[in-house]
Design a protein around this nucleic acid. Sequence first.
RNA 1: CGGGGUGUAGCGCAGCCUGGUAGCGCGCCUGGUUUGGGUCCAGGAUGUCGGGGGUUCAAAUCCUCUCACCCCGACCA
Length: 426
Amino acid sequence: MRSSVYFYPTLKETPQEAQIASHRLMLRSGMMTQVTSGIYAWLPLGLRVLQKITQIIREEQNKAGSLEVMMPTIQPAELWEKSGRYHDYGKEMLRMQDRHEREMLYGPTAEEVITDIFARFVKSYRDLPKRLYNIQWKFRDEIRPRFGVMRGREFLMKDNYSFDLTFEGAKASYQAMLEAYVKTFARMDLTAIPVRAASGAIGGELSHEFQILAETGESEIFYDVDYKNLDVNTLTLDRLQSLYAASDELHDPKICPVPEERLKTARGIEVGHVFYFGTKYSIPLGAYVMGPDNKQVPVEMGSYGIGVSRLVGAIIEAHHDENGIKWPISVAPFKVGLLNLNVKDKACTELCDGLYEKCLQAGVEVLYDDRDMGPGAKFADMDLIGLPWQIIIGPRSVGSGQCEVKNRRTGEKIELSLEDSLKQIV
RNA sequence: CGGGGUGUAGCGCAGCCUGGUAGCGCGCCUGGUUUGGGUCCAGGAUGUCGGGGGUUCAAAUCCUCUCACCCCGACCA
């Protein structure tokens, strides 16, 4: 993609509403922009990141034996009256009427809808287990939206729902999701700690929150200091769960197994949540199957959420410096930024155009800064949007045949021939 | 919802106290200049001063109502 025809309105100054790094950087890099309180429009650069994250989540969900569906954003109140949550959900639910004055709502979650679908089609234990998920926009009319996409009112969520015949089956589903989550977050260069948690309005009996440690997190957690030393690449669920972590509501110093000197407290950003809640929805919504003993049994359920749009912010919180974002390669909007330091220099531009073509042919996602601007502004913009690699070509390169390759993460710069620069990156 | 704050050009802000022709920096447009870390020079465009009502000869400025947004707290992916 050529910068000259792309659309990423970068800002030199920080918009006054942005208090935390991720919010600031998302606005400054032109990834997204606020439409109204807690509601954002995603611009091309931000959308690419959102799509990369979505795809990683999708792949890991599929590997964990789940099937993707797509449920609507608008739901009928009826289903929620059956589950009893229409009243309980309160003002956080955005309610509306259609032209027939039928009560509708913008879905804050989808237990009712998916359970109803399941109930209508699945009648036998032989069809179990089933794990169905979708990645869809949700709306929760938060008391106080803040921190950009970290706590928006409208947000993109992956929500998975498991249906099993027995408690043991449900536990296996729960475990499969825990494992999928560890892999999912690791692929984004995040160490997310599964913290035993109290379950909120969704209700339930067994529940973990996945928290990313960050000063700007909204919840307080207690954890074993060893969490800081884990290697994302070799992380396993067993290892993660062998360490102590608890939310402040559940943490009890009296029964905490971690000696005081190893116990740390920090703020966490919740990026995922897994619940087991048994038959809480299957009974009221009539999700029964025929068991092997010819008896109707309500199915055992769990639900598993990941805040997809929140993850964009969370990843930036974990990966940035004073100059801008440092994207992990797996979610970067482009893999490499190609900087033409002087577009008016014909020979220089020829070199750049040539390398750009080669990148495209090699299937390397490249943002080619071919705008007519000073070099300083280009460096600043490229650091800000945080692509993992930069290839810098200026008039100097014309004589030498060398370009500079910069690793945004480490800041390391090396001089290479144009040929080698591409090899370095691929 | 309770407490605090802000609305003036696309962005960041000054002006308001003490009423009298609406300003600065960045950005934008034109021309030139410069080209390895946000070049420099010259010229130019852009505002219902968030909105309604009131006071006054006169309101960005004073009074009043209202809307929006932000920050602190309780809730959540």
